Amino acid sequence: MNGASPRWRSILDQNSPVRQWDGEFLVFNPRNASTHLIGAAAYEVMSALIAARQALTLPELAAQLVGAEAADAAFHAELGQCLEQFEDLGLAESLPA
């Protein structure tokens, strides 16, 4: 492996069904007909991936969410865990850099 950061993209799009209840979001994955309940912070991450016109590296996504200066190592670690959970759920996929 070359050590380059993978690029991330959502498998959902702008038209994917989403419903909000009390600060949480119900997200439907049409690829496998599964439904997931995610928190507001996770949905903010998902929304940024959906809005991106191309797959993003973790640092690019972090900069979009909180700004490059505010995205410290702890934020990167938490964001990385969120992206890995999305991938496990089939809501996002990582692509080679």
Rank of each mutant, 00 (worst) to 15 (best):
T35H: 06
M1H: 10
A71N: 06
L37D: 11
S5C: 14
A77Y: 09
L56M: 01
Q20D: 07
G67Y: 14
A70M: 01
L79M: 02
F25M: 06
S47A: 03
L91F: 05
A68C: 10
E60W: 04
A92V: 05
L65D: 08
A68M: 01
F25G: 02
L95D: 00
L37K: 15
P30R: 05
S10Y: 03
A51Q: 11
I38S: 03
P6Q: 09
A55K: 10
V66A: 08
F86C: 03
A74T: 14
A51M: 10
W21E: 10
L37R: 12
N29M: 10
P96V: 13
Q85S: 07
V27E: 01
A41C: 08
G39C: 01
N32C: 09
R19T: 15
E24M: 08
H36F: 03
N32K: 13
A40I: 11
E60C: 11
L58A: 10
A52K: 00
R9W: 03
E24K: 05
A62E: 06
H76R: 15
S16H: 07
A48Y: 01
P96M: 05
L95A: 03
A70T: 13
A71K: 01
H36T: 13
R31P: 01
A71G: 04
A33D: 09
A92H: 06
F25L: 02
N2I: 14
L89C: 06
E93N: 05
P59N: 09
P30K: 03
T57I: 11
P6K: 01
R53L: 07
A52C: 02
P96K: 07
P30T: 11
A68H: 15
R7L: 05
Q85M: 13
S34Q: 08
A68D: 14
A63Q: 15
A70P: 00
A51K: 06
S10Q: 02
E60D: 12
F28R: 00
L12P: 00
V18Q: 01
E84S: 11
P6I: 13
R9Q: 14
N15A: 04
Q20Y: 14
S34C: 05
E78T: 15
T35D: 01
A42V: 13
A68L: 13
S5P: 10
L79K: 05
Q81T: 12
A51F: 11
E87D: 10
E44Q: 15
F75Y: 10
P30A: 07
T57W: 09
S16G: 02
G39A: 11
S47R: 03
Q14I: 12
I11A: 00
E84D: 14
A51H: 07
L26E: 13
A51R: 12
W8N: 07
N29C: 06
Q81I: 15
A97G: 05
E44W: 12
I11E: 04
L26F: 13
C82P: 03
D88N: 12
A71T: 15
L58Q: 06
R9E: 09
